[in-house]
Amino acid sequence: MRHINHSALISLRGKVQRLETEGRQRWQGQSVISTGTKPLDQLLPSRGLVRGTLVEWILGADRSSGAGVLALRAACEAARDGGYVIVFDRQHCFFPPAAAAWGLDLKRLVVIRASSVRDELWALDQALRCRAVAAVWGGLEELDWRWFRRLQLSAEQGGTLGLLLRPARARGQPSWADVQWQVTPVVPKTERSQQSQHELQHQRSLWQLSVTLNRCRGGAIGRTVQVSIGEQYRDDSANSLPLAASLADPATGRAATGT
């Protein structure tokens, strides 16, 4: 058996890491983009998402798990400095009035409805490469690793945030995304609690989601937080926390947010 040269291995690893992060360093100096949801920011090493990277959001089967909304809020945050948001909607189901209600500026929104997967990937690549685009938001059912790598390089080149909504089966697949979130709704509880009726009403109208960080370099992988969404993001720094959310362990999380 040949002797393994440890110092060579370490230097190689360093080289690979430099290669991988080379493009990203260009955007590292620029301000980090909040996800629009504070508990999620706290799980990330840079306390937010970095321009020029891809972020995957694992969706429920019926697009009803809340992942789309969380991703859209990150897109709104990215577009705060005047960039455009490009929505890819091949399935013809994106509803602009709801996106506007979540705080997206429709004047700087472009919706792309490609007729084939091939065209959509091409358009996605073009949009990520464009410096005038702040964020790209869209669902991608199938994505082979070559295209994935290509999209990641384009995002890096253009400094665009790519928010990809992926099906549940994308979880175990190889990924070029920097961050992967899995979003599942919290099962609503029906038993009565000590809280006042009014408070209960308010909390019930909010949407309780449980978000797990599946993948992130240097992040708290595997951690789950519960967030509740439902109020529009307000644009004043004094009150920039729109959530009634708390960071909690998965085990104690349910008990803490018991409704």
């Binding site: 509803f95 009035p97 979540w102 429709l106 969404i229």
Partner: peptide, 19 residues
């Protein structure tokens, strides 16, 4: 002629619309 004010709150209308 783009944009416009949304008439509803964020959780009152769905983000994915099946028509």
């Amino acid at each position: 002629n783009l944009g416009g004010q949304p008439a509803h709150g964020p959780l009152e209308r769905p983000l994915f619309f099946y028509h």
